[in-house]
Each structure stands twice: as C-alpha cells, then as structure tokens.
C-alpha cells in the first residue's frame, strides 16, 4: 500500500507501519507522529534517534527494555512520550514495523 507523507511516497502495511525503514525521513516521522496524536519534541527525538541507530544495526526495532537500558530513556518517560503503547508507537514513528516480541 502506498501513502504520501510530507511529499514523500512510502510503502505502509494495513496498520500504517512503514514496510521499508529505508524510506523513512525526519519529515515522515513528524507526519507519522501526528497520526498518533503526538507532537515531537527533543525527548521524542532522543528515542527515535536511538531506535534508528539500533534498528540499523540489528535489522529490527528495539523493545522497551532495550530502549531503556541501552538507549537510556527511563520506562516512565517512554510511557509519557508515547502514551497508549510506547513500543508500537515509537517503532511506528521511527519507520519500523510492529514489534514482534512479547516484551
């Protein structure tokens, strides 16, 4: 499925997750965040930057524990930044698919 986000055409799945993280740009992130009702600030970007970096190294978006332990973002803050499902929403905004782990 194709979708136009801030002038870029990206491939998304039925739930709006990018299917190719390579199509992600910062402008796309802003649009994806808006869909989730989130206005991105510096704290969000710290999370997104970590997910992009870690995701590029591992081929998949990190889970919450990794974001907190290695990314250095406390669990509480993560839940405040991405209310109603931090792992999913942070992965989505960062251009990755829905996380598959149970954690």
């Amino acid at each position: 499925m194709n979708k136009e986000l801030s002038g870029t055409t990206v491939d998304v799945d039925a739930e709006g997750y990018l299917t190719d993280p390579g199509q992600w740009t910062k402008e796309v992130a802003v649009e994806l965040a808006k869909e989730e009702g989130i206005e991105l600030n510096d704290r969000h970007w710290k999370v997104i930057d970590f997910i992009r970096k870690d995701g590029a190294e591992n081929g998949t978006a990190p889970n919450v524990r990794r974001i907190t332990k290695i990314g250095g973002v406390p669990t509480k803050e993560l839940y405040e930044l991405f209310p109603g499902g931090p792992a999913k929403k942070a992965a989505k905004v960062s251009g990755y698919g829905k996380p598959h782990g149970c954690l």
């Binding site: 524990r65 782990g101 954690l103």
Partner: peptide
C-alpha cells in the same frame, strides 16, 4: 537470552509502566 528481565528488574519496569 529472550531479553526478559529478572523478577526484581521486571517488577520495577512494570511499576514504571503505571
């Protein structure tokens, strides 16, 4: 290995999720 924390750490994490 599955990235599931030990009980104490898990409890702290769960409390922090609200």
């Amino acid at each position: 290995k599955l990235d599931i924390p030990p009980v104490r750490e898990f409890m702290e994490m769960i409390a922090d999720t609200g």
